[in-house]
Design a protein around this nucleic acid. Structure first.
Length: 355
DNA sequence: GAAGCGTGGTC
DNA sequence: TGACCAAGCTT
């Protein structure tokens, strides 16, 4: 790791906080500086909930889920007592479903310990679903305790400020060191939100607003004239394209769905039965042989879906269940309930596409 | 420590 | 329109 750069720490802190006091966003889970200064205290449960939902997720996507969860489970005890399938159903559509499983596990651990979220970083890190970023964010936003948050926004801001020439994967320790050095121990909560807001609204991936940036005076990438060159991108690997045939079996106004294994892709969520997901296409003959029922299938929509590490094309076939036939696993679900079920987006598209 | 893990919006 | 992107964690 290179030696710490000669940065105008105090000036950076002050200009960022001045900017945040005037320009910072007002988000549902956030306490604005004037409210914090007036003694308003954050609800650690609400802060934690928002941070888990916001992991790799945009504010507009997460916000309705945040309100839905707070309304339905107002306290950590309520969430801890909830049925796991109901929580997964409420999470459906938000993605990264391990977060929901960890959310329940974390709520139960905190509830069992009296319902009080820990303040110490090591205690926060010991909870399921809480890593380095989230532990720091909870310390800062919920408890106003010293912490250095390093998320994608902060990584972008720091790599530009210091023109760090390697991909983030390589330079992460250096980024953390610089971020921690600048972090303001006087107003930790406001500072953490300020630096993330800076990345989200000013130091954006494309077309950053350097003219409106409180750190432009010190920014090396700005001086170079090409702030968008940072962070340096790692070469990306092509994602495979997979094929499957999905089997929608209806009985009147119900459809056969089953639960996926509790770990792994879409873990614990509902699915329509399907062939293996593989890179080779499926012939009609092979797909028919792999079907859960030997009936006359009708072809319906072809569903395209993109996951993090592969894309999938699922041809939907449908059939009416023969009288007396029952699935060996899973069960019948009313079509009118599709929005209340633990259906990931792919499977919701599959069900609707098979109609 | 590299790989696995979703989704929807944007340009 | 396909590539890129968004407040990461776990194994």
């Amino acid at each position: 790791m290179k030696p710490v750069r000669d940065l105008p720490i105090e000036k950076l802190r002050h200009s960022l906080l001045d900017w945040y006091d005037a320009e910072g966003r007002d988000l549902p889970w956030r306490i604005r500086p004037e409210a914090r200064a007036a003694g308003q205290i954050a609800d650690p449960y609400a802060v934690w909930l928002s941070e888990i939902m916001l992991q790799q997720t945009t504010v507009p996507h997460a916000t309705p889920y945040y309100f839905k969860f707070l309304d339905r489970w107002p306290s950590v005890h309520d969430l801890a007592a909830a049925d796991e399938d109901e929580v997964l159903a409420a999470w459906a559509g938000l993605g990264y479903y391990a977060r929901a499983r960890n959310l329940i596990a974390c709520a139960r651990a905190v509830s069992a310990a009296g319902g009080v979220f820990p303040e110490a970083e090591k205690d926060l890190l010991a909870l399921p679903g809480i890593g380095a970023y989230t532990a720091a964010a909870i310390r800062a936003a919920a408890f106003d305790l010293p912490a250095s948050v390093v998320d994608g926004n902060v990584e972008r801001v720091i790599t530009r400020l210091c023109t760090i020439p390697e991909p983030v994967k390589t330079s992460k320790p250096e980024i953390r060191q610089i971020a921690a050095e600048i972090a303001d121990p006087g107003r930790p909560g406001d500072y953490a939100q300020a630096i993330m807001d800076l990345g989200a609204t000013v130091c954006t991936p494309r077309k950053p607003d350097c003219a409106g940036c409180p750190w432009s005076f010190a920014c090396a990438a700005r001086a170079e004239g090409h702030p968008e060159a940072y962070p340096v991108k790692a070469p990306k690997v092509a994602k495979p394209h997979k094929h499957a045939v999905g089997f929608a079996v209806f009985r009147g106004e119900t459809i056969w769905l089953r639960k996926r294994p509790s770990r792994g892709l879409l873990g614990g969520m509902l699915e329509v039965p399907s062939t293996e997901w593989r890179t080779e296409k499926w012939s009609l003959t092979r797909a028919r042989a792999a079907a859960p029922l030997d009936v006359q299938w009708a072809k319906r929509a072809i569903i395209s879906h993109v996951f993090t590490h592969f894309s999938l094309e699922m041809a939907m076939w449908r059939a009416e269940a023969p009288t007396g036939w029952e699935p060996d696993e899973g069960g019948w679900h009313a079509l009118g309930d599709v929005d209340q079920l633990a259906l990931p987006s792919l499977m919701k598209k599959a069900v609707l596409g098979a109609l």
